[in-house]
Amino acid sequence: MKTTNPTPTVTEKNKGQDKVEKIEKEVESFDEIYDVAVVKGKKDTLVVYKVKHMQRFNMKEIEKDLNKTLEKKYPKENFTVSSDYKIFLEAVRLVERKNNGSLSDKQAEKRFNEIVKMSSDMK
């Protein structure tokens, strides 16, 4: 399976990078998941992932278990969790543009909020 494995990103400089990396490791520990992107904004943390093909029948259960695990380990965080491929692509684009310097922190936060809103609208 082809994975992109983008680096976990924070929209603000030097705020919570370690926590975001721990969250990514936690999500990657699920056997059913093979690719993860984690982006942390000022208020929310976006976790998007891809599920292995044969596990697609269990997607609701996987998302429920993932939500429960993240809420238990990080109770102060506000998570937006999605397995939607479009949201995954938008998150990866945001990470790439942030890392190569074509987005400022303010622009990255604005785009991050648009992606979170798009994710919540799809549910």
Rank of each mutant, 00 (worst) to 15 (best):
M1K: 08
T3F: 07
N5A: 14
T7G: 03
P8D: 05
T11C: 12
K13S: 11
K13V: 09
Q17R: 10
Q17C: 13
K19S: 14
V20E: 04
V20D: 03
V20K: 01
E21H: 13
K22Y: 07
K22Q: 15
K22H: 14
I23T: 02
E24D: 12
K25Q: 15
E26F: 11
F30H: 02
D31G: 08
D31N: 13
E32D: 12
Y34G: 08
Y34P: 02
D44K: 12
T45I: 11
V47P: 02
V48W: 00
Y49T: 08
K50E: 10
K52M: 10
H53N: 14
M54F: 14
M54G: 10
M54T: 13
Q55R: 11
N58V: 05
K60C: 06
E61D: 15
D65C: 04
K68C: 06
K68A: 12
T69A: 09
T69F: 03
K72D: 15
K73F: 07
Y74P: 07
Y74C: 11
P75W: 03
P75C: 07
P75Y: 04
E77G: 06
T80R: 04
V81K: 06
V81H: 05
V81C: 08
Y85T: 09
Y85N: 09
K86I: 04
F88S: 00
L89C: 07
L89Q: 05
E90S: 03
A91G: 05
A91C: 08
V92L: 06
R93V: 01
L94R: 01
L94P: 02
E96D: 14
R97F: 05
N99C: 02
G101C: 08
S102T: 10
L103W: 03
L103T: 02
K106T: 10
K106A: 10
Q107V: 01
A108P: 00
A108L: 02
K110A: 04
K110R: 07
R111H: 03
N113D: 11
N113Y: 01
I115G: 02
K117I: 07
M118Y: 10
M118V: 05
S119E: 12
S120A: 15
D121H: 13
M122V: 09
M122F: 07
M122N: 13
K123Q: 15
